[in-house]
């Protein structure tokens, strides 16, 4: 029964995908009637005007474009035109730096908050206010104070991906079962040993769930940040192609962003499973 459920869901997924592609193809395959025009004039105009081609690209155009990018992902034609692979590498590097700093800060601070009800209450209002701020709101402030655009992008990733890990760590630490802590106290276990051998393993699944949410946010933020600061990265690529009004390239980039985001999420999901324990 389980196998047949997996099979049936796969079939349904494929059917949904095929249906979506078909609707997309039909919707964009309309050729509007074109007014007759002077050939000299037609030479100066785009395909939308001269051939009545839909301004929205069809699935075939996008597939061809993606294939072009995959064939040559690492070209470098000057500082403003690099291959999709290089742009992705820049984005992933930025995300990793910002995210790792966020994790390195969030887990210790989360531990403190989780272990001390005083700190938890004192810091709560700050966390609640800072948590919902959009990355784009941080950007001008970061650019103005840090005075370096790539550091600003990393700062924005840091500040936005900090909160889920922090809150989850605090929650995980605070909700370690009383009995375990009491046993530790009876055995007169020291503070550090208690933190590393009892609280950390007990809170690990919650912490990793927080980290999984954080990496998702970091990846969301990078596109917005790079669209703003420009230069390199997948966000810049989207912006540059938007400048050219090339929707085909924008859709191709959207797909790539989705795939990379999913890969990040799956890696963290695997890690979470590794530390999960049966109660």
């Amino acid at each position: 029964m389980a196998a047949s459920l997996a099979l049936r869901s796969a079939v349904l997924s494929v059917a949904l995908f095929a249906g979506f592609i078909l609707v997309w193809h039909l919707a964009t395959n309309t050729h509007q009637t074109v007014q007759a025009m002077d050939p000299e004039y037609a030479k100066l105009m785009g395909m939308t005007v001269t051939q009545g081609k839909s301004a929205m690209p069809g699935p075939l155009d996008v597939a061809t474009k993606i294939w072009d990018h995959l064939k040559d992902p690492f070209y470098d034609r000057g500082s403003n035109d690099k291959g999709l692979g290089i742009q992705l590498a820049y984005s992933i590097a930025r995300v990793m730096v910002g995210y790792l700093i966020a994790v390195a800060v969030a887990i210790p601070v989360g531990f403190l908050i989780g272990m001390s009800p005083l700190l938890s209450r004192a810091l709560d209002p700050f966390i609640q206010i800072l948590k919902p701020i959009s990355p784009l709101a941080w950007m001008p402030l970061a650019l103005y104070t840090i005075k370096d655009s790539s550091l600003s992008a990393i700062f924005v990733i840091f500040i936005c991906s900090l909160w889920p890990t922090l809150i989850n760590t605090a929650f995980g630490v605070a909700s370690v079962r009383r009995e375990w802590l009491n046993v530790a106290r009876t055995l007169e276990v020291g503070v550090f040993r208690r933190a590393f051998t009892i609280i950390l393993p007990a809170a690990a699944p919650t912490i990793l769930t927080g980290m999984r949410i954080s990496i998702g946010i970091a990846w969301l933020v990078i596109v917005a940040a790079e669209m703003l600061v420009g230069g390199t990265g997948i966000g810049y690529f989207v912006w540059n192609e938007w400048n050219n009004l090339s929707i085909t390239n924008v859709i191709a980039a959207i797909l790539v962003i989705g795939v990379v985001g999913m890969a990040f999420d799956q890696i963290l999901a695997r890690l979470t499973r590794l530390v999960t324990f049966p109660e």
Partner: peptide, 17 residues
């Protein structure tokens, strides 16, 4: 190196920086 920039406010800040 000529660098493409996203907007007037960003170009101002990057020049100041």
């Amino acid at each position: 190196e000529v660098i493409k920039t996203a907007g007037w406010a960003v170009i101002r800040d990057k020049t100041l920086n």
